[in-house]
Each structure stands twice: as structure tokens, then as C-alpha cells.
Design a protein around this nucleic acid. Sequence first.
RNA 1: GGGCACGUAGAUCAGCGGAAGAUCGCUGCUUUCGCAAAGCAGAGGUCGGGGGUUCAAAUCCCCCCGUGUCCA
Length: 852
Amino acid sequence: MDAAEYDLPVFHRGGFHRRTCRSCGSAFWSLGDHAVCQEAPCRDYGFLGHPIIPRPYAPDEVRETFLSFFEHRGHTRIRRYPTIARWRNDVFFVQASVYDFQPWVTSGAIPPPANPLTISQPCLRFNDLGEIPEKGRYFTQFEMMAHHAFNRPGHEVYFKDRCTELCHELLTSTFEVDPTAITYKEEVWEGGGNLGPSLSVGALGLELATLVFMEYVRDGDGMKPMPLTVVDTGYGLERFTWASRGTRTAYEAVFGAAFDELRRTFSPADTAVLLDHARSLNFMLTDGIVPSNSKAGYFARLVLRRSLRILAKSPEAPELVAILDRVARDQATAFPEIGEHRDDLHRVVEAEIERFGESIERARQAIRRHEERVSAAGARVTEDDLLTWYDSLGVPPDVAVEELKHPPPIPADFYTQVAARHEGEAPATDYAESTEGLPEVPDSVPPTEVLYYLDPYTVAFEAHVVFAKGPFVVLDRTYFYPTGGGQVTDRGHLNDLEVVDVERRGAWVLHRLERDAPWSAGERVHGRIDAPRRTQLMQHHTATHLLNGALREIVGPHVWQAGAYKGPESARIDITHYRPLSKQELHRVERRVNQIVREDRPVKSYFEARSEAERRFGFTLYQGGAVPGKELRVVEVEGFDVEACGGTHCTHTSEVGAIALLGTDRIQDGVVRLTFASGERALDLREEHEEILSDAARRLGVPVEKLPDGIDRLLGEIEENRRSARERLREDLGATAQRLLAENSETVGTVSVVAATVALDRAGLMELSRLLTRGADRVAILASEHEGRGTLFVGSTATRVPANALVEAARPAFGGKGGGNPAAATAVGEPGAPLTAALEAARSAARERSAV
RNA sequence: GGGCACGUAGAUCAGCGGAAGAUCGCUGCUUUCGCAAAGCAGAGGUCGGGGGUUCAAAUCCCCCCGUGUCCA
């Protein structure tokens, strides 16, 4: 990055000078006389005991001071975004304030909620998990205070100079930091294909803030200017608090009294981890994460289980939920939502604790069994076993060792070895929305006016073609609903041509026809939507919202929509929940939604400013992972459920008709799927089910209500038949056995040998042999022609006459393949092989061995 | 989303190419006034599902499904 990028008027006005850090080699600007930049590791922490900010601040004070500073300088204060980044598919959590505005605001696709704005955004970051608490300053949950400006061509808000000026004023006049202590280090920021200069703000060894100026797009090896430039700042709330107190670690400064309380039971390090993890968990659980074994839920499980292991160290340890509540008290001043729904949150946590206990118990048993088995074989448990157990049973090595009589040493680099095992695994792939096969639409084509938002009932309309290529047509206006929000697309006709697909692409709605469009731009066409299909889709979509509302009400507010699909035949909603739904819960939900349907509540769909909608309804609006634009489309079922949603909806709940729950599955740890139907389809399916039932009853010859009895009777008969068939076979074989013992038996020495040719399958041969060799010193040699292939079967209870040896001896006689053990052996020959010769060979081998 | 482990009797699991097992539970009998307990006998398995290799598959290979766990 060119040095001119950092040569800001604010530095010259203030009398800053530019130096090169003797330690890291980076250039920095300062009013003081420093040989190195004022950040670790270039210099030590100089503020421990000598705070950078001369008076102590509480975290809440730091936040309020920061936000009101920027509010008084023309910024709009914005409420926090959820910590779960539902609007993005490349990350799970918000890790910086700018995540709130990526990708749509930063790309210029939609306007920011305010400009300029200021926010204090709670973030979650788990990459430094291992660094807690060693370095004394990492948190899994932290707040990034920020001021952001988004500059469009012709609408410049502010950029590098003003941004740095504001930062310096905040630090020196409001927080009273010694101006000469501060250094602004020149850095390059790059991320998400964008890059730009940045300034890292440090004092007395502590990095307090970063000022990032996104102004270029990566273009091959070079870069080109972005049409929209972004001021992206980040001020660490925890860092400021620490800087104002100069305590040994940031944790003591940030957690305050809660730290001192827990410190009585735990080491400083364990105390820090417990409090940090409690803060993370409170945010994750409040924002709708259910602990699970994959995706975002895994991080909740990870920090929860780490906390439990620490708690297990002390008999005086409080319950985990008590710690969560204690931390929530401090958090709730700024974020009251953290304090809501404590009971439900406790249930989620308790369920997870129970599962962890079961899982550990299962693992302990498996470990003990494994050791018994290997020691019986004269071996010992290995280091490798420890690795496998950690990976597959979730047992940390120290826990495993407790269970072992002869434990192997725990390798010092255990977790490095774990990581090595996971190397070369395919990384998580985030799918990009596929626009493959869709044509490029020139920018000159006017955006499509979408009418289905305003009026979901109109199914016939006139419009003009504005673009056509192959089977794709863009109209100036359309009522056709494109794929989105889990609702499948409308079907219908444009003039006489069938519309087979509808997709949104940028500002346009593309209609895909059954064949190439015969029209050119400017032509007028008549659109007709398949009305029954649309009606059914609307009913399913509104029913989804009703179910979501009922589930949150009945199952608990930890329920969030984790996905949905609304097809013409049936629909489904996936929800976050920690165990399968019970029959009772399902019945209650079904009754509740149908009650809402009967109450005929109005369903209002309207656009509203994002901030206003959030203020009125809270974050539960974002059930579908909504786009954080300036305006939201709100779908409100009066007094029951409110969601941001772009779908087509009924205007009254009664239009949904009836809702029938069809089934439930656990599709993933922490996610439960409900399948349902509404409207006509609900009735159709009920009829189909009744038809199936009455058909089954007719076939069984019982009335429908006696069906279970009828089935029991039938199953009983089947069982009885099976039993008697088996008995008959046994009797037959028994008779055969007696006959053979009487007629085909000879005694050689102490061994009695039976040899005969029969016609039985493999199982029959086995059974007969068993009967013939009941008792000691018996040998049965059976030959059988079955399904064209000759089988020789030998069973033996005579130790001197191993069955496999006889088969071995007989095999050359008929070219059979086979083998076995001393008790039983078989060989099978090709069709036409001389089976009798084989039988004789086995018999004489038996005689020979018996006679010895 | 990927790696690893696991899926065998009602339950907990063993067996890991050659004739499906153990323990608990269940049923019956013996013993007891009765219960508990003990002894004896017995019932209960498409060895998660589907393909393949083999003379032979619970066992080896492939694909699904389910569960657990670790990692993104």
C-alpha cells in the first residue's frame, strides 16, 4: 500500500511525526517520541498498575460514553445485531461489527440502516479458545464498538481523515488518554476480496482500536477502486475497560465483582474461563443456538462442556445455570433480552448437561471393556487408543487415564496429534446461490416491478416484455413468485406458453418458458398464474408461520426456524430443539394452530423500517434468516407471530383452512422437522389416510376400530405357522436322523460314523448333522445335491476326527472348494462332480483316523 | 460440511470369515405358608437396510440409514 494512503491532513494539522518501528518495521504516526510502536509485542504492557485511561470505567460506562460521543457528532445509534449470523452462509457468528453489513450493504446492494452510524456489537469468536486465559486478554464473547460510514459516489460521508480525527478526539478528550502515548501504526487490511489501508491504534503496549478503510477490490495481482468505500472501525470495549483499570488481566477489569465471587472457589485462570464462557453461552442461547454436534451448535456444546469440566474440579462449585444467571445480571443492563426466558434457557442447559453425563458414562464403560479385552490378549492400552477415544467418544485423555489400570503416558503434544489426525479433511464448503444457466441481463433493462408483495390474490395480469433470451423472459411487472424463502415458484402461462420456472436474479425476475420465447422487448403479454397451486402455496406458507408461533409458545422460546419448505403437496418446517417432540406436544401444537385458524386473525404484510420493526418485535423477526436491509417486509399474524418474510401470504388465518401435522423426524442433532399440510391438501391427506385404513380393515375383515386387534391376531397366526413349520421340519429331520443312525452307521474304535446321501439345503444339512452328532465321538458325513451343486457336509464331535480334515481328504475326489473347523466343515463341487466318490473318500478317511 | 467410532436377544454388550453367544430381565418348574433368593428348564435374533467378494459373511468391500463424538 502506497505511503501516501496514510499521509493524512489530520496528522499534519496536529503535529504528528512518522517513524518506523525499530521492532516490527512498520511505520507509525505519533505525537510522542517513540522508537517502537506502542503495541505488544513491540513493547511490554506499560499500563498494568498505571492505567492508560486515568479514571476507572465499568463496561457499561465505556459503551455509553463511546456511543454518545459519536451520537453527538452526527452518528445514529444502532441496536446490536444477533450474534448468530443467520443472514450469511460463510460464517456462523458475528465476529466484528462490519459483519452486520456484509455482504449487501458493503456491496452497495442495499442502503445501510443509517449513515454514519455507531454501534456496540457483541461478537463471538472461538478461534482463540486455547489462548483463554493464558494471554489475559482474549474473550470468546466481546463487544466491538464502532463507527461506520458508507460513501457512495456523490454522497461522501467521511473517510480516512475525519475518521482518524474522531478517533483521536475520543481517546484524548473524552477518555483523557495522554496524546503523546498513542501511536497510529500503518497496516494493510484485506478480507472478502476487498482491501485498503488501516491504522492500528495503540498505547502503552495495548491495541485499543483498528481503523479500516475499505476502498479497493482485489483484481488479479493488482487492485481497483471500489465504487462504495467503507469506514470500518473496531474499538474493543473490554480493552478500554482494562485500559482504565490497569489490572493484571482484562478479566478482572471486565467481570468485576463476579470475578471476585468465583475466585473464592477457582483459580484465576478457571474463573476467567467460566465467566467468559458464561457470557458466550448467554448470547448464543438467547440468540437461538441449541447445543448440538455440528455447525454453530457445536460451539455452544464445546464451551458448555469445557465449563462443566472446570466445575467438576471443585465440590463447592455452583451450578452452571447459577453462573449463567450471575453473568446475565451484568449483561442485562445493556441487553435486556439476555435476562428474558431464563427458565427455558435453563431447560436447554440442563438437557445438555444430562446428555454430557450419559455420554461420559458410556465412554467410561467402553474404555474399561477395551482395557479388559486387550489385557486378556496380553497387550496394553496405547497412546493411539487415547487419541481415538478423544475423537470418537469425546473423552479427554486425563479422564480416560482415570479409568485405566495400566494407562499409557499422555503425549505432551496430544492436541497437536489430534489436529494432525484431522489434517487433509475436506473443508466446510459454503454453497453459493447458483445462478448457473441463467442469462446475463444487461444493466439497461429496467428492474422488475414485483406485484405479488402487494397483492397475493391477483393471478392474471398484463405486462410488457423488457428482455428475452432463449426461454427466459423479463417483464416490466409480474405477479409470478420466484423461488425464495422456502416457497417454491409459481407456475402458469405467458400467453399460450407455459412458465416452468421463475427465478430472481438481481433486480429482475426471470420467467423460464417451456420453449424459446417468440417475443421481443416492448411486446405486450398476458400472464396467468396457476391459481389453485398458488393458493395452496400461500396456505402452506402462512401455516408455517402459525406453526412456528405455536411451537415457540408451547415448546419454548429457544425454538427457531432452522429451515422450511413449502411445496404444493406438503410442507415442512425445521426447528431448533434439543430432543424429539412428544406426541402430547404435537397434539397441543396442532390444536393451537387450528384454533388460530378458526379465530380468523388478520395476517398483515407490510414494509417497515428495520429499526422500527426490531424495536417493536425484537430479533425473533429473523426466523427465516432475513436480509438486514433498511426496510423489512414484515408478516404479522395479529397478536401471535411476527416474522420478516418475502413470501405470499393469506390475509386472514381462516383462509389456511385446516392444518394437519403428518409426521416428525430428527434430521440432525438439535434440529427437528415437522411435516404438515394445510388447506385442501390437509383434507386430501386425511381422506387418503382414511381410505388406507378402511381398505386395510376390509382386507382383514374387521371394522376399522378393531384394526389393531385384527393385526395382532394375524401376527399371532403367522408366528404360529412359522413355529409349526419349524417343528415339522425338525420332526422330519429327527426321523431321518434315527433312520440313518439305524441303517447307515458303523462303529470304528470308539467313534461312530454315519455317512449318507440326502437332499437338503445348507441349513438342513447343518440341522441334521447336529442331530446325528449329539453325544461324544460321533461323526456325520452327509452328501447332498441341491440346486444343481453337490455339497459335502461333515460334522464331528470326535476329537481324533476333525471335520475339516475329512473335507480336506475328500476334496480332491470331486474337485470341491471349501473348508471349516474341527466341528463342522463343508465343500461344494461344480455341477456333475462325483459326489459319491467324495462321500466314500471322507468315509475312509474317517475310518482311518478313528482306528488309530 | 468433513473425519473417527458405534449399530448383534426386551436392556447392556462379547464374537470380527467356518454350526449366533454372555449377563441382567422375561416364562415355566423345583424349593417356600407367601415373598425374596437359589437351582433347573425354556422362550425371545431377517446380527440397522441394500448391493458385492467367497464354497462359506454378524465378521471383508461399496452405498445408504440411524446414534455418538471430534474438528471447521
